[in-house]
């Protein structure tokens, strides 16, 4: 492994003892032979040690438990707790599910209802147009049907319908 790979391992898996036996052996061999990487490894150990070995904060002051205890005791009775718990579950967990569920349902409705309806409408319009074209080309002699050349020849005029 290159020095950069070794240092990547040192920064995480190696220093945190999350590395496999073979990889550990490989990193250790490199560290033994490379002063630059060994120095890097020691610097990482120092950073961790400064957090780990520093004086830990003392626990919370006694008034914290007193406040918690007071609040628990002054809370409403159990039945209200249950209702409140349900509401909080709804707010915490179910609300996003309801929102996402509604969005998914709306998309499903769009797919199942609106898209086929639109397609149906398009198909009907296409069929009408094809029928009209068939009428136009079915009988060239038919004086009732002709192209409206004044409008660029793009629309059919059915004279007897007008």
């Amino acid at each position: 492994m290159r020095c950069q790979d070794i240092q990547d391992h040192v920064l995480t898996d190696f220093v945190d003892h999350e590395v496999g036996v073979d990889q550990k052996r490989e990193v250790e061999a490199h560290l033994a032979a490379c002063p630059h990487c060994r120095e890097f490894f020691e610097a990482v150990l120092n950073v961790d040690a400064s957090i780990k070995e520093g004086p830990l904060p003392v626990g919370p002051a006694p008034h914290v438990w007193a406040k918690i205890s007071d609040q628990i005791q002054s809370r409403p009775d159990h039945a209200w707790d249950v209702v409140r718990g349900w509401w909080e579950d709804f707010a915490d967990g179910f609300r996003p599910r309801v929102v996402y569920g509604s969005m998914a349902a709306a998309m499903l409705v769009a797919l199942v209802v609106i898209v086929p309806l639109a397609a149906q409408k398009q198909a009907a319009a296409r069929a009408d147009r094809e029928e009209l074209l068939q009428l136009a080309y079915a009988d060239d002699e038919n004086p009732a049907v002709g192209w409206d050349s004044e409008q660029g020849g793009t629309s059919l005029v059915l004279e007897h319908w007008l």
């Binding site: 990547d8 920064l11 995480t12 220093v15 945190d16 610097a43 990482v44 120092n46 950073v47 961790d48």
Partner: peptide, 12 residues
């Protein structure tokens, strides 16, 4: 963790 340690090394 990698980013954190890199940042702490630079800070030190």
């Amino acid at each position: 963790l990698k980013r954190a340690r890199e940042t702490l090394l630079v800070a030190r």
